[in-house]
Design a protein around this nucleic acid. Structure first.
Lengths: 124, 124
DNA sequence: GTAACTGCAAAATATTTGCATCCTT
DNA sequence: AAGGATGCAAATATTTTGCAGTTAC
């Protein structure tokens, strides 16, 4: 299934690029000045994630955040790092440090999701 | 606000105890043989979490899982450990190892949520 | 007896899907 | 021209809330 480079995709990608931090669906929606259809945003983000272009972070608030995670692009493999969600300003950012987790024998990992919530430097 | 030890609370707690692994709302619902009101289950679980009796784990599937986490009771402080969700059988379990994350200066942590998905020993 | 709790219904929130149309390639 | 993508509406899923009646203490 070939992908097409459409207007909504360009806009969402550019929003993620300029944000340099993870954005929730809601945040993206408002960046688009509420001009864009919700279903489209969901579909585009899901597509991006499928294609490995974008990172899906599930917050402990149950909401999903999306990020380009430039670090991951460089390192390709092993993007086992944490994200930090600020309870005050809502920002979600990548933490640099890589984490190595040793699983018990027989366990096969597929995906890693690590999130810490608290107060970021600007808000604390 | 004083708490009362009601029938639904007893049943849910006993389900969590006998499970010895995290249960989603859905799983609890079916253990109750669908006799119990959904809203009640949500309210009881939220109350348990507020009181620190039960652990809320947000899966990378966006669903919430609840666990007694006996380990945590013993250690009281610092329950910074990972959970493992099996993509095949749906089980969510605690991983023993404690994680120490060093945050950048100025960041104040409040809550930790670490989850790895993959295939557990029985399913892999 | 009283305040907390339950059960039901309805609301609020979050995400997906069917379908006709549009637009990229 | 072909078929992937959008936009709209409706469906689905998840969680919360208002309220009247119930129950633990």
């Amino acid at each position: 299934m070939k992908r097409r480079n459409t207007q909504p995709k360009k806009e969402i990608l550019s929003a993620l690029k300029s944000a340099h931090s993870a954005l929730s669906h809601e945040m993206i929606q408002s960046e688009m000045k509420d001009q864009m259809d919700r279903a489209t945003i969901y579909r585009v983000l899901n597509r991006f994630c499928e294609d490995g272009l974008v990172h899906r972070i599930v917050g402990d608030d149950g909401k999903q955040y999306f990020a380009l995670c430039l670090q991951c692009e460089e390192k390709k493999h092993h993007h086992n790092h944490f994200h930090f969600r600020c309870l005050d300003c809502g920002t979600v950012e990548c933490l640099d440090k890589e984490i190595q987790i040793s699983l018990p024998a027989g366990y096969v990992p597929e995906h890693f999701n690590g999130l810490i919530t608290g107060h970021c430097r600007r808000c604390s």
